[in-house]
């Protein structure tokens, strides 16, 4: 970084007033992304830009491709067409010698994927490791942190999610809500720029959802973290998200601010979906 340090120790941006404002680069970009399973098109030429720090809630009927979207961004699924970019760099592809985009190799995937973290519906903690080990494992093995440093980071994050007294417990000894909070701490320990949450409260008893949502809420306030969240909890989406995307048949059928989407939806499908959800709850 060539950001000059001022004598008083503060940083001054290199962009002076005379320089043109840089066009804002999205933190995440889906450009024409298509994903098929055989005959079934799950993502259908999807375009989506998410700005740095933006919180996007993704809602929509079952099977509309919401999880697939997050999983493609986490590189858990390969896409058939289009490109996904993270922080201005192609993730699913990389430039070859002549600058043409070709499918990313493992090395490229590993490098760019490091910007992204994910929390799963079913927690997916490592059952044979203590809570602390779960959070320390990847920072030590992947980022090469010293054990002491990783331990400090783990304890800090586990305190943030309210589990400072469960460090030596094993996942099986925790409630679902506690396990999910460990999973959030584990993902955060890798210092991702983008966090993905796929129905992280769906496997929880209703009374345990609150503690997990509170952690996510606090994350949203405290960090300049970009978040994509698939959720069925419209109340939380409304309060938390900067933007809500309604998914239907592998496309974003309608999107807008929570107020626009929930209070004045333009599309019939959106209205149908919202009224169905309202009836169910």
């Amino acid at each position: 970084m060539n950001t000059p340090v001022q004598p008083d120790g503060t940083l001054s941006p290199t962009l002076g007033p005379e320089q043109p404002e840089q066009p804002e680069q999205p933190m995440v970009r889906f450009a024409g992304v298509t994903k098929r399973y055989g005959e079934l098109t799950v993502l259908d030429g999807l375009d989506l830009d998410v700005q740095e720090g933006e919180k996007v809630a993704i809602i929509g009927p079952s099977g509309s491709g919401k999880s697939t979207l997050l999983r493609a961004l986490m590189t858990l699924e390969e896409i058939d067409e289009g490109v996904i970019e993270v922080d201005g760099e192609p993730l699913t592809h990389m430039p070859d010698a002549s600058g043409r985009l070709v499918r990313a190799n493992t090395r490229h995937l590993r490098r760019v994927r490091g910007n992204v973290g994910m929390v799963f519906q079913s927690f997916n903690l490592f059952p044979h490791m203590s809570v602390r080990q779960n959070v320390m494992e990847a920072p030590v093995q992947v980022l090469g942190l010293a054990k002491s440093e990783a331990r400090e980071r783990a304890e800090e994050l586990l305190a943030m999610v309210g589990l400072e007294d469960k460090l030596e417990h094993f996942p099986a000894q925790l409630s679902g809500g506690q396990q999910q909070r460990v999973a959030i701490a584990r993902a955060l320990a890798m210092r991702p720029k983008v966090m993905l949450f796929d129905e992280v409260t769906s496997a929880l008893d209703p009374e345990l959802c609150g503690e997990v949502l509170n952690v996510i809420r606090r994350l949203g306030e405290a960090h300049n973290l970009t978040m994509l969240m698939v959720t069925h909890q419209m109340g939380f989406a409304r309060e938390f998200a900067d933007r809500v995307c309604f998914f239907h048949q592998g496309r974003i059928h309608e999107q807008g601010t929570p107020d626009e989407l929930f209070n004045q939806p333009r599309e019939d499908r959106t209205r149908e979906f919202l009224s169905a959800v309202n009836e169910a709850s």
Partner: peptide, 16 residues
């Protein structure tokens, strides 16, 4: 399979 997804999401090398 979810364990493999977790290690991928944490960017771990296959050997580790």
């Amino acid at each position: 399979r979810a364990q493999w997804e977790a290690v991928t999401a944490l960017n771990m090398r296959p050997w580790t």
